[in-house]
Design a protein around this nucleic acid. Structure first.
Length: 260
DNA sequence: ATGGCATGACAATCATGA
């Protein structure tokens, strides 16, 4: 099973990119973030024509997440298992959707950006991370084959940052955010990317400005965390920079993990 | 220090992102 995550920064604008990349990559499950459209505008029929079933939680303008599952792979998706948002955490922002695919718990998450340490949005990010972790703890106890995929808006280490000195003290790299990432790992999750040898300075996000992609001025903020059972089955994890080079790209690149 | 680019809502700028 090939699973992937991609922040598309508007599924309306990136619909064709998503369809093209599904054909190119052949992934079985794709977690999407930043749909930026309400549920009634989700391109379900177009994705079905491309061979994928969809589950999603959208809203107007901001946020929005989805899970696409290859239709011809014969995967069973347990409808009763589908969860939108973090149970018990009141939130108007649509940032989480979970579904169980062939017994594998798949969670697509768009973590808050946090704006800047000390801001109200940063405090919301901390509360959201607390709620996510406590829900994951329960969910993973019931469903030990669990994968948390998404835009974490956290670069876990300095080697995940093109210029750690310039970024010091900012959101995405702050000690508080990195401590939250560590607490997710302490639940028993493994960063699939770091399970393997990787090229130096490989990131998943590059700013649209200042020719950041050409300068490789990026951050690794999109991740696939796997429970022990899935980490043991994981045979590769790669960042695909190809769609970041297409015309009118998302500012994020997709990340793929293969489970044997 | 600021904005640099992109998207969406909305109809000229503004909120937000990372």
């Amino acid at each position: 099973m090939k699973i992937a995550t991609w922040n598309v920064n508007s599924l309306k604008v990136r619909q064709q990119h998503a369809i093209d990349w599904l054909a190119l990559s052949g992934v079985d499950v794709l977690c999407l973030q930043e749909l930026k459209l309400p549920d009634e505008k989700f391109p379900r029929a177009e994705l079905a024509a491309a061979g994928y079933r969809s589950w999603f939680a959208g809203q107007k303008t901001y946020n929005g997440v989805g899970i696409l599952v290859r239709a011809d792979a014969g995967f069973e998706v347990d409808e009763i298992s589908v969860v939108r948002n973090i149970p018990g955490f009141e939130d108007l922002q649509q940032r989480v959707i979970a579904a169980t695919v062939n017994g594998v718990r798949i969670i697509s998450a768009y973590f808050p950006n946090g704006q800047a340490p000390g801001s109200e949005k940063f405090a919301y990010k901390m509360r959201w991370l607390d709620a996510l972790r406590e829900w994951l703890r329960e969910d993973m106890a019931r469903r030990p084959k669990l994968a948390l995929l998404g835009d974490y808006n956290i670069a876990p280490e300095d080697r995940d940052v093109h210029d750690p000195k310039a970024w010091e003290g900012q959101n995405l790299v702050s000690p508080e955010e990195r401590a939250h990432f560590s607490r997710l790992i302490e639940l028993g999750l493994t960063d699939a990317f770091r399970k393997f040898e990787q090229p130096e300075k490989l990131y998943t996000w590059w700013d649209y400005r200042m020719m950041a992609f050409r300068r490789n001025a990026g951050l690794r903020i999109d991740h696939i965390l796997l429970s022990a059972e899935l980490a043991a089955r994981c045979t590769s994890c790669e960042v695909d920079k190809v769609p970041r080079k297409w015309d009118q790209p998302s500012d994020h690149a997709p990340v793929i993990a293969t489970l044997g």
